[in-house]
Amino acid sequence: MSNELLKIKNLSTSFRIGDEYYAAVDDVTLTLNKNEVLGIVGESGSGKSALAFSIMRLHTKAKIEGEILLNNQNIVKMSNSKLNKIRGDEMAMIFQDPLTALNPLMPIGRQIEENLFLHNKKLGQQGRKERTIELLNLVGIPRPERVYEQFPHELSGGMRQRVIIAIAIANDPELLIADEPTTALDVTIQAQILDLVRELKEKIHAGIILITHDLGVVAEMADRVAVMYAGQIVEIAPVEKLFANPLHPYTRSLLNSVPTEGQDRLHVIQGVVPTLKNLPRKGCRFAERIPWIDASHHEENPELHEVESGHFVRCTCYEHFYFPDNKEEQANGVS
């Protein structure tokens, strides 16, 4: 048996606008190994959250095509009752906003116990309570017996996010999807939550998909990184390779727009992120944002090319890409 936990093949997730379906996730293929952290980076509208929701099948009104194989079971085609056996057990999700992701009228303890109750019938009421207290301890919540009785509004944002993590890891999931888990939190809390996820990873041995817009967060957390633009993966590589040698024009542009040491002007990507309805469906989707690159450098049907082992880039335009405001690079061609 291979080390493969999750295999996504030609996944497309489409939403209906008016009378037509538009793919927010467009033909995505990727794999996640056991114990691996895969970061998925992109801006709003890149399809990264739609991808996460598709894996959990949380979209109620989307059309999903392709295959999502978790331990060789296809989630896309699964019956609802089978799906509910897997959700919360084999796979679980950490949500973005801790202020809204908990039921305001249910005590914290009951919200965690619900997950235990649904997947572990053998555990009695007492067993569930013990396990819940244990989980609250595990995610670093002080005085768990008290928090067990409390309601969400009595906890701070950081504490609530820990509760959400406790819910997610209650049944030792093999796949953990974290959708922007720290975006709504303060920096010091963010650091604590990220450290917690890192520690938990060692303990529960889950494969983690970490969705974020924050390049710093991926740099610290991920083993491999997939960069998404306009519904597609444009680059995927082990984290060191991606940051040391980013290839796709979008990845490079994105890295250049984050403030770093000794930079006076930040790089600005021309134009705007296309809306779902206006996504360019033919050719290189990033082409219109880099008009100074000659059209002949793009592929007609851009494919992912393996540049070196494990490092894939979509389209051939990366070979000819340069930043227009960098005169030197322009003169020398590709460095």
């Binding site: 959990m56 949380l58 609802n80 009752s81 799906l83 509910n84 056996k85 897997i86 959700r87 919360g88 057990d89 679980a92 999700m93 949500f95 906003d97 809204t100 992701a101 908990l102 039921n103 305001p104 009228l105 249910m106 919200q111 619900e114 997950n115 649904l118 997947h119 959400i164 819910i167 997610a168």
Partner: peptide
């Protein structure tokens, strides 16, 4: 509401999501 997604992600079936989360919260 977002917490309905949390409930679904736990593997709660439709009936349970409605009874334990949606109806209860709406009846208050």
């Amino acid at each position: 509401k977002d917490f309905i997604l949390t409930a679904r992600a736990k593997g709660a079936g439709e009936q349970r999501v409605y009874n334990k989360h949606i109806f209860r919260n709406s009846l208050l």
